[in-house]
Design a protein around this nucleic acid. Structure first.
Lengths: 345, 345
DNA sequence: TTGAAAGCGCTAACAA
DNA sequence: TTGTTAGCGCTTTCAA
């Protein structure tokens, strides 16, 4: 049996209320008793039961975090940013992984309600109707990360994936590329899948360039292997693109790996651009042109919004915080060879 | 105010005990009442208060996890492995980051006791005496990850870092290298710092090779920058090593980056080996020789030990689980040039 | 099969 | 300044 406040009180010869007051500094207690109580605490190794306290105070000091996965620098960076804010305001985190499974996400939202989280941070890959309904009717403040939710009264933090993709593809176009392919993610993934693809699509359309199925490939897991496979299918087309945009750096690196193994030189024969600017991007050869954004900052800002709400510094109403990004041009993209040959004529 | 069991009971016209019995299936309840209660639950959107339940049952179903950092593939892999086990046995996780700060680790151990964790998983970078004392006297089962604790009665999971380093350096020696340097981590980091350095040291000594200060460098953060700086100081020595062992892949990649920028070819002019085999290792050029081990498995196995203890399938006594590793030879290490020249004479 | 009532360990209102 | 006591929301005896 763990030591309780009763035992400490008995040992110090005071009432449990006095012990509580000393430990919480909630009311003045004479130095003499304080001394005795502190000694009794020390002797018994008493640790106040935070569960009992939560029960009375109707708050747990806990923030529930839901991420699709964690062994991915994007989400681990996110969690790190969240942890920084939690630490700052003395909140503690519960962490669960949804595996991008809507059923599981719903279950987790319910479990976090049951467990009386003070707030919830939810990095949602998609936005399932049942989950959305749950979040809307739930009476725990929740910030959704990576999903715009303007129609409902839930704050969220995102980056403008579509615009970032658009700009990256535009960079390729400005280098003279006319045949631009893409390895994209699953389109049900609203943020990194759909929006990034749409930005690509829009850039091509607006510049009157062809959007050809043979030059696009879908990867389901945003990993290196997706990039290898995607590149293989694209590279085996009779007519090849001169530039490739990938929905994430890992896909881009996979594509580069495929090409390197075949002695295709980058960017001479194919320009490649990625997205995310993870550490990897500047370590591969050639260094990857990509979109830099900060998952840490995303986590930090989302958690700030949540703690602001919890501290009643802010209302829990609709709000979409759009964070910055930056297209970082490195060595994997270059002027289109065909174009320069054209000039040389 | 959130809905309580009282409200559900009133609505269904039964006692709160009956509601509890239906929701927990703890005792038989007539179908008629069961029906009414389930409806009332549905109508009110009642979510049982898990905090109140924990209070009575004296268990929370929570596992407290402490890691030094999370935006690092080693620890995020670890957490993923832990999560898999937690999920399997319906435990939930609390996650906190210690930033390798012993003071903070102690605080976290106490907070987790206060918060009534059923068990604790602690990835300790060092082993501070105060923390060790806390863990020993604590009456919550704890598994320490990455620290051998045979003297105390605490289970732990580790890999044999010293032996893995030894073997990697031996691989370099077998390639004919006689002048072998190392970029190591801080020596207070028992696992990745001290043990890996000792393995290197032992290999040199046993083979009668020189251990020279000018060929070793210490990095404090196990990052790419540590590798760049370390390589710089080593490469600027009048006499240079022909091979380099690094305490982690990032350091190795940093060293390679430094050399590449100076047009030094790897492995011709310098063989480089790393440790960890993170994804990065097989994506850089040349692909890195390194030590493969699995943080996921480490997390999984540690969590298994803990859940076994919690399910009373295992006693909470001393036990050190040593996981496997494997030296993966790739393209960044090759026969010592000086040796082959020697042969060619 | 059901209900009444006694706590779990603590905080906070009320009394002294 | 200190102690007494009433719960927080639930599970689990015990009795009916």
């Amino acid at each position: 049996m763990a030591v309780t406040i009763r035992e400490v009180a008995k040992r110090a010869g005071v009432s449990i209320a006095t012990v509580s007051r000393v430990l919480n500094g909630s009311k003045p207690v004479s130095d003499r008793l304080k001394q005795r109580i502190l000694e009794a605490v020390e002797e018994t190794g008493y640790r106040p039961n935070a569960v009992a306290r939560s029960m009375i105070q109707k708050k747990t000091g806990l923030i529930g975090v839901i991420v699709p996965e964690i062994a991915n620098p994007y989400f681990s960076g996110l969690v790190e940013g969240i942890e920084a804010v939690a630490n700052e305001w003395s909140y503690y985190l519960m962490l669960a992984i949804s595996e991008k499974n809507a059923q599981r996400e719903l279950e987790l939202l319910r479990i976090y309600q049951s467990r009386q989280m003070d707030g919830i941070l939810w990095a949602a890959a998609q936005m399932d109707p049942a989950c959305r309904a749950e979040v809307e009717k739930m009476n725990i403040p929740c910030v959704v990360i990576g999903q715009r939710l303007e129609e409902v009264c839930i704050p969220s933090a995102v980056i403008d994936n579509r615009r970032a993709s658009y700009e990256t593809v535009k960079h390729l176009i400005q280098l003279g590329h006319q045949r631009i392919g893409m390895i994209h993610g699953p389109l049900w993934d609203v943020q990194s899948g759909k929006e990034r693809f749409e930005g690509y699509r829009q850039a091509l359309l607006e510049h009157g360039l062809p959007l050809r199925d043979e030059w696009t490939a879908e990867g389901l897991r945003f990993d290196v292997q997706d990039g290898v496979k995607g590149m293989e299918s694209i590279w085996n087309q009779p007519e090849r693109p001169t530039a490739l945009f990938c929905a994430c750096d890992r896909m881009a690196v996979g594509a580069m790996t495929y090409l390197k193994e075949r002695g295709v030189s980058i960017p001479e024969e194919l320009s490649v651009a990625g997205f995310d600017d993870e550490e990897l991007a500047s370590l591969v050869t050639p260094r990857l042109t990509t979109v830099r954004h900060s998952p840490y900052q995303m986590g930090y800002e989302s958690a700030r919004i949540l703690t602001d709400i919890l501290r009643r510094k802010r209302k829990s109403t609709s709000l979409t915080l759009t964070l910055d990004y930056q297209v970082v041009i490195r060595d994997s993209t270059a002027t289109c060879k065909e174009l320069s040959q054209h000039w040389n004529k």
